[in-house]
Amino acid sequence: MISRDSIYKIGVIGKPHGVKGEVTFNFDDDVFDRTDADYLILDVDGILVPFFMEEYRFKNDEMALMKFEDIDTQEQARTLTGCEVFFPREKAQEAEGEASLSQLVGFTLVNAEELTADAEKANGTAADDSTGTPVGTIRAIDDSTANLLLEVETPNGRQLLIPMSDDLITNIDWEGHRLVMRIPEGLLDLN
Rank of each mutant, 00 (worst) to 15 (best):
N171C: 15
D173K: 13
G21R: 01
K59A: 06
Y39K: 04
G21M: 05
L160D: 03
K67V: 10
F107L: 00
K20E: 12
L187C: 12
E151M: 14
G21S: 07
K91A: 13
L168T: 12
L148T: 10
T125E: 08
E185I: 10
D166S: 14
I183K: 05
M164E: 10
R178V: 03
T81F: 02
G14P: 09
A77L: 04
D43N: 05
M1A: 08
A64Y: 02
E55I: 09
F25G: 04
G18R: 00
D166G: 15
A119M: 05
I71C: 06
R89L: 06
F32S: 02
E175S: 09
R178L: 01
H17N: 14
L190T: 15
E151V: 15
A140L: 11
L40C: 03
A119S: 03
S102T: 15
D173W: 13
Q159F: 05
V180L: 04
A92R: 00
I41E: 04
C83S: 07
L187M: 14
R57D: 14
F51P: 14
E98W: 09
N171M: 15
D36P: 05
V31R: 12
G176L: 07
E153V: 06
F87K: 06
A126V: 11
L149N: 13
I71E: 09
N111C: 10
F107S: 00
D118S: 05
N156C: 02
L42I: 04
L109G: 08
A126F: 09
T79I: 07
P134F: 00
N191A: 13
I10H: 02
A122N: 06
T125G: 06
Y56D: 13
